[in-house]
Each structure stands twice: as structure tokens, then as C-alpha cells.
Nucleic acid binder design. Structure first.
Lengths: 190, 190
DNA sequence: CAGGAATGATTGACCGTTCAACCAAAGGAG
DNA sequence: CTCCTTTGGTTGAACGGTCAATCATTCCTG
């Protein structure tokens, strides 16, 4: 079956990328891991870059965060799920961070990564907007707050990847307090 | 002269790395840019990895932030300087982000990057501790706050790199407000 | 003339991508 | 039911190139 093979290659690529990193991963390695001829990889994916972006898409669909609940409760739920995600999904996060770096100089990967980040950020902004709306506050700071919250989560991911001892729970709790107090209407205190 | 040549290679390496990115930069490219023979690069730097780490060290010494002033004023000064840094030093930041990604799978670069991040974070923590001390508050949240602030700055750097339209000034101002209000003694409001 | 600085050819390996050929299954035609 | 054609998934060798690292050699300075 066709789409079966495609997925097998995606899975193998993720395995090898997680083990060796982007720059030490060759198409040959991926083909071997998948138990398939080298040429077949290019049959399903036009280039290494497009393959890797497909892998990112493939593994990120499994770790989405913060759906269902609305308003501040939804924000708190999203923070909790982020804490959970920080404990698992190490390889997925590592791939994400790596591709951000590669994308700074590779146009194809850069475009893909930019789209990913845009989607991520819009998601955070959406939650921020809901909180502000629930509090009947001016929604305009949502964009700025989302920028900082998204940024902080990315940085926390990096710290956790680089130093597994890093207390990401504490960091996310601190971030939750900071961001929710920043979303209070002016003059109301935090 | 010896140390002159060494520095010439460092500068050339930075130029090429900024233009092409880590994985597309070869020793040969660097040697050509520096106007020296290929072998000379390995004469001064045992491996490509050690060279690149030396480059990071070399260019980061020029963009340090937040010295001199103490306490909350020092924190505000550091935030202002960070805004300024966000406007310039694009290549330095790009190299930093890239090496974080590479370091996730390369032990040599990983060790170097870990040291860099550790130094960076300790610096932020120091400032946080000063602010808390000035406010005669419990210094123990300093570590958590520093983790989030450092994280947010890294994430803001990434957003600015990926999307030059990103309003990093707004983001850093928001972060300043958020973090300083998080550093208030409990029950005092923000 | 000794020794550090500098050269650049060489080594041995690896890369992403392309391509002609192979094969199993499906579809019609007789 | 059989033979022939078409399709498209699959193969693995080959191509043109690049790479980090080594080393015998030459240069230059003190």
C-alpha cells in the first residue's frame, strides 16, 4: 500500500533525525531505517528539506495544546497541558528547535518553519484575546502578550532540552501568573 | 603575527557563517574568506566545532548587556539595552540560535552552548535578585523569574529573526512590565 | 639555522539527487 | 480463462560534487 510506505518513511525519518540530528542525517540512513531503497525516499518527497518539514508536521499534529475550554479556564488548561508536553515529546521539541536554526539560512525550511511559528502564535493570541474579552478589557494588548508568552514557552523548551534538570513546571507556573496578571484591566492591580 | 591571523580567521568564519549558516559552511570557505590556506584553519582550531564555538565567544563578547547600574534601575537599563541589541547584532543572534539547535545532537557544541546559556541565565538571575533585594522581598523567586525572563528574551530573538516585522520593542516592554510586577512582594499588587 | 607559521595537495569518506530498469497487480480484449 | 498492456511502487547503481582532516613541505623571522 502506498500511503503506508509514505508513513513508514516519515516515522523512520523522525527516528533517525531524533537520534542523529538534521545535519548528520542522510537520506540513506532514513531509507535503511525504513527498510526501503534510497530512491524511494525521493519518490515520495522531492527533497530532503520537504521531507523534514513533512516530518515536523507529522509529529506536531500529535502534540497540540489548549483546545475545548474557553476564556481564563482555557488559558489555565493550556498552561497545564504545556507542562505535560514539556515532560514528554522531547524529540519533537528538539526537531522543532533544530529546524528553526536551520531555517534561518535555508529558504525552503525557513518558509515552513515560519508558517509553523505563525500558526503557533496565532493560537496563543487567540487564548489571550479570550481572556481579555472575558474580563471585558481592551483586546489590543493581546498581540503583545501573545508574543511574550509564545516566546517564553519556546525559551523554556530550549532550557529544558539543554538542561533536563531545569524545572519547567516552576517556569510555566511563573509564566502563567505573570501573563494573567498582565492581562488585567489597568488600575485594577495584580 | 600569530594572534592576528587567528582573529582574522575568527572574523572570516563569522562572516561566512552569517552568510551561509552552519551546515553550509566549510573550512575551505572560511579559509578563502580569510585569505589563508585551508590547513591553517586547522592549525589554529582543532576542529570545525571548536572553531565555531570560538566564533560564538568572539562575537558575543561584543554584545553584553546590563552592567553598571544596580537594582530596579539596572533591570530597566538592561531591558533598554536588550531592545537596542534586538535592532543590531542580527548575525550574532542567528549564530546563537543555530548553535543551540546543532548542539542538541553534537556533544562538543552542546557543551559549549550549555556553558553560554548558563552564563546568560546567571546574569539575568543576578539582576532579578538585585531587584528583589532592593524591594526587601524574599529572594527565592529570583531563579524562577530569571528562567522565564531569559526564556522570553530568547523567544523574542527567534521571532525577530524569523519575522523582521515583529515588534520586539513592544514585546520587551510587555516583558518588562510582566516581570517587574511579578517581582513585587505578595499582597502589594501590580 | 632553528622552529613556529603557513601552504595546498591528498585522503578517504559521504552527500542529495537522478535514472533506467524491474516487478506485481489491475484491466481489457479476444 | 488467457494473453497483453498499463500503471505505479520499488530498486540500487551511478553522477557530480563536497567535506573535514592530515601531512610533507616550504617560508619566514628572530
Amino acid at each position: 500500500m502506498s500511503s503506508d510506505t509514505r508513513e513508514k518513511i516519515l516515522q523512520a525519518a523522525f527516528t533517525v533525525l531524533s537520534r542523529q540530528g538534521y545535519e548528520n542525517t542522510s537520506i540513506k540512513d532514513i531509507a535503511e531505517e525504513a527498510g526501503v531503497a534510497q530512491g524511494l525516499v525521493h519518490y515520495y518527497f522531492k527533497s530532503k528539506q520537504l521531507l523534514v518539514l513533512a516530518v515536523l508536521e507529522y509529529v506536531c499534529r500529535k502534540v497540540e495544546v489548549g483546545g475545548g475550554v474557553e476564556g481564563e479556564a482555557g488559558a489555565l488548561k493550556a498552561f497545564e497541558e504545556t507542562k505535560e508536553m514539556m515532560r514528554s515529546s522531547r524529540d519533537t521539541k528538539a526537531l522543532y528547535i533544530q529546524l528553526i536554526g536551520v531555517g534561518l539560512h535555508d529558504p525552503v525550511i525557513g518558509a515552513g518553519v515560519r508558517e509553523f511559528i505563525g500558526r503557533d502564535r496565532a493560537h496563543v493570541e487567540d487564548i489571550a484575546r479570550q481572556v481579555l474579552h472575558e474580563r471585558e478589557a481592551d483586546p489590543s494588548p493581546a498581540r503583545g502578550i501573545a508574543g511574550v508568552v509564545w516566546a517564553a514557552i519556546l525559551g523554556i523548551i530550549v532550557q529544558k532540552l539543554v538542561d533536563p534538570e531545569f524545572n519547567s513546571d516552576e517556569a510555566i507556573d511563573t509564566l502563567a501568573v505573570m501573563s494573567l496578571s498582565a492581562a488585567y484591566p489597568p488600575g485594577q492591580g495584580g
